[in-house]
Simulated assay, not measured.
Amino acid sequence: MPVSADPAAIAQPTVPRLPALSWARVVIRLSAMVGWLLMCVPTYYAARLLRLPIHVPRMFLAGIGRIAGARIATKGSPAPAPVALIANHVSWLDIPALARARGAAFIAHDGLSAHPVLRWLCEMNGTTFIARHDRAGVAGQVDQMRAALATHPVVTLFPEGTTSDGRGLLPFKSSLLSALDPAPAGTTIQPVLLNYGPGSAEVAWVGTEHGVHNFLKILGRAGRLPIVVHYLPPLEGSSLASRKAMTAAAQAALGAALAR
Rank of each mutant, 00 (worst) to 15 (best):
Ala11Gln: 03
Gln12Met: 12
Leu18Val: 04
Ala24Tyr: 06
Val27Ile: 13
Val27Tyr: 09
Leu30Phe: 05
Ser31Lys: 12
Ser31Gly: 15
Gly35Val: 06
Cys40His: 14
Leu49Ser: 11
Leu49Arg: 10
Pro57Gln: 08
Ile64Gly: 05
Gly65Tyr: 04
Gly65Thr: 07
Arg66Asn: 08
Gly69Thr: 02
Gly69Ser: 01
Ile72Arg: 00
Gly76Ile: 01
Pro78Val: 10
Ala81Trp: 05
Pro82Asn: 03
Val83Lys: 02
Val83Leu: 05
Leu85Phe: 10
Ala87Leu: 06
Ser91Thr: 13
Leu93Lys: 08
Pro96Trp: 12
Pro96Gln: 08
Ala104Thr: 12
Phe106Met: 07
Phe106Val: 03
Ala108Met: 14
Asp110Gly: 11
Gly111His: 06
Ala114Val: 10
Leu121Lys: 01
Phe129Ser: 02
Asp134Gly: 02
Asp134Cys: 05
Gly137Glu: 08
Gln141Tyr: 13
Val142Leu: 15
Gln144Val: 01
Thr151Phe: 10
His152Val: 03
His152Ile: 11
Val154Cys: 11
Val155His: 02
Thr156Trp: 03
Pro159Ile: 09
Ser164His: 08
Asp165Ser: 07
Arg167Thr: 14
Pro171Ala: 04
Pro171Asp: 15
Ser174Trp: 12
Ser175Thr: 14
Ser175Val: 15
Ser175Glu: 14
Leu180Asn: 04
Leu180Asp: 02
Thr188Gly: 05
Asn195Gly: 07
Gly197His: 04
Ser200Tyr: 11
Gly207Ile: 11
Gly207Trp: 10
Gly211Asp: 09
Asn214Leu: 08
Ala222Thr: 12
Arg224Ile: 12
Ile227Leu: 09
Val229Trp: 00
Tyr231Ser: 09
Leu232Cys: 14
Pro233Met: 12
Pro234Trp: 11
Pro234Val: 05
Ser242Gly: 11
Arg243Ala: 03
Lys244Arg: 12
Ala248Leu: 09
Ala249Glu: 01
Ala249Asn: 06
Ala253Thr: 02
Ala253Asn: 02
Leu258His: 07
Arg260Phe: 06
